[in-house]
C-alpha cells in the first residue's frame, strides 16, 4: 500500500515547503490577492459561520493519489473526546446550522458515533464525508448506513467516475467495486431514494491534471449510468476541482503538470465565483482543535487570521464572523470555471 508523504518524510509533508512551491510567482502567475483586487476586492471577509467543518482525524483506510489531507492507514492524528467536547460548545452558537464531519475516514475515530449523537442533540444538520469503502472495511462498520439513517445524517461520498478505471486509478484497486457495493447498501436503507428524505450526494473530482467538466451534464450522465448498470440512485453530484496541495501537488510536480495546471486554474478564473467561496460561511477545525478558513488552509497550516481566535479553547464567534480570510495561490482552485467548494460548483 502507498505510504503517506508524512511517513515517507517527504519534502511536501511540510506545509511551508508546499507554500514555497505555491507562492513562486513563476511563469508570470499573478498572486490570487492581486487578481481579485483587479475586480475590486481588497481581500475577502467572512460573512458569518453557518458551516462548522471538523476534521476528526487523518487516518483513512484508503490512500488516494490526489488526497490533499495526505491521509492513510499510517496517519495517527485523531481528535480526542476532549476536543470534541470543545467543538460541542462552539457548535451551540445559533448561526451554526450544519456540522460537516471529514477526515481521513471520520468513522475511524473511536468517538465518531458519540460525536454525531451529541451534535444531533443540539439540533444541527450533520454531513458525513464517507469514502464508501469504510462501510466494508470491517464488520463493525457494516451497519453505518443504518446508523446514518437513524441520525438523518447527510452522506457525501466521492466517486470520481461511474466506470472502474478512473476510480481505481485515483483511489486504489478495487475501490470502485467496493464503492458500488456500499452505495447499494445505502440505497437499501433509503439513501438517495426519492422522497425518503435521506440525502446521498456524490462527489466527482478529476482523475488527472485537468478541471472538472460541467456539473449538470455530469450529474445527468452519472444518474443514467449508475442506475442503468447497477440500479443505484443518488441525490446530487458535486463536481470539485483538485487543489494543488499535498499528494495532488506532488503528483502535479512529478508528472510535470504543475505549471500547466496552475495556468489552467488561472485562465479559468471566474470573478463571479469569488463571493461564494466556501470559506466565507465556514470554519474548519483540525483534529487538535485549531481553527482554519477551510480544509485546504488547514492542510497548508494557515490558521485563521490571528486577530480572530485561533483555537477552540478561545473560540470567539463575533471575531470569527467577520475575519479576513487567509488567501494564497491554491485559492485559484476555488474560483476556476464554475468555482468549487465542498458543495460543488458555486457559480452558474
Amino acid at each position: 500500500m502507498i505510504k503517506s508523504l508524512k511517513v515517507l518524510n517527504h519534502n511536501l509533508a511540510n506545509a511551508d515547503n508546499q507554500l514555497a512551491v505555491l507562492q513562486n510567482e513563476l511563469n508570470g502567475q499573478p498572486f490570487f490577492s492581486n487578481k481579485i483586487a483587479t475586480f475590486g476586492y481588497t481581500g475577502l471577509q467572512a460573512t458569518g459561520i453557518e458551516v462548522f467543518q471538523v476534521n476528526v482525524g487523518k487516518m483513512c483506510n484508503q490512500v488516494c493519489k490526489h488526497c490533499h489531507v495526505d491521509a492513510g492507514p499510517d496517519r495517527k492524528e485523531m481528535m480526542t473526546l476532549e476536543t470534541m467536547q470543545l467543538c460541542l460548545v462552539a457548535i451551540q452558537n445559533p448561526t451554526i446550522k450544519t456540522v460537516d464531519l471529514t477526515g481521513g475516514a471520520p468513522e475511524l475515530n473511536p468517538n465518531f458515533r458519540w460525536f454525531v449523537q451529541e451534535i444531533k442533540k443540539l439540533g444541527k444538520h450533520v454531513i458525513v464525508r464517507c469514502n464508501l469503502t469504510i462501510i466494508l472495511a470491517n464488520k463493525k462498520f457494516n451497519d453505518l448506513p443504518e446508523f446514518f439513517k437513524l441520525y438523518e445524517v447527510e452522506v457525501v461520498s466521492s466517486l470520481p467516475s461511474f466506470t472502474p478505471d478512473r476510480t481505481n486509478s485515483q483511489r486504489g484497486d478495487g475501490v470502485f467495486e467496493d464503492s458500488i457495493t456500499a452505495l447499494k447498501m445505502l440505497n437499501a436503507v433509503g439513501y438517495g431514494v426519492q422522497n425518503s428524505g435521506l440525502i446521498l450526494n456524490l462527489v466527482y473530482n478529476p482523475a488527472g491534471a485537468f478541471l472538472p467538466p460541467s456539473q449538470s451534464a455530469l450529474q445527468a450522465e452519472y444518474k443514467t449510468e449508475l442506475f442503468k448498470n447497477y440500479g443505484i440512485s443518488f441525490n446530487n453530484l458535486f463536481s470539485i476541482t483538485n487543489m494543488p496541495i499535498s499528494r495532488y501537488l506532488d503528483y502535479l510536480l512529478v508528472s510535470g503538470n504543475y505549471l500547466k495546471y496552475m495556468d489552467k486554474l488561472i485562465a479559468a478564473f471566474n470573478p463571479s465565483a469569488i463571493d461564494n467561496v466556501m470559506c466565507r460561511n465556514t470554519i474548519s477545525i483540525s483534529w487538535d482543535g485549531f481553527l482554519y478558513d477551510c480544509d485546504f488552509n488547514q492542510m497548508l497550516d494557515l490558521k485563521v487570521n490571528p486577530t480572530a481566535s485561533q483555537h477552540l479553547s478561545e473560540f470567539n464567534i463575533q471575531l470569527l464572523n467577520t475575519r479576513n480570510i487567509v488567501l494564497k495561490q491554491h485559492c485559484y482552485g476555488c474560483t476556476a470555471g464554475a468555482g468549487s467548494s465542498c458543495g460543488g460548483a458555486v457559480a452558474g
Partner: peptide, 11 residues
C-alpha cells in the same frame, strides 16, 4: 485528446 478525456471518455 484533453477535452474528450476531461469530459469523461475512456481511453
Amino acid at each position: 485528446s484533453a477535452d474528450a478525456y476531461e469530459k469523461g471518455y475512456s481511453k
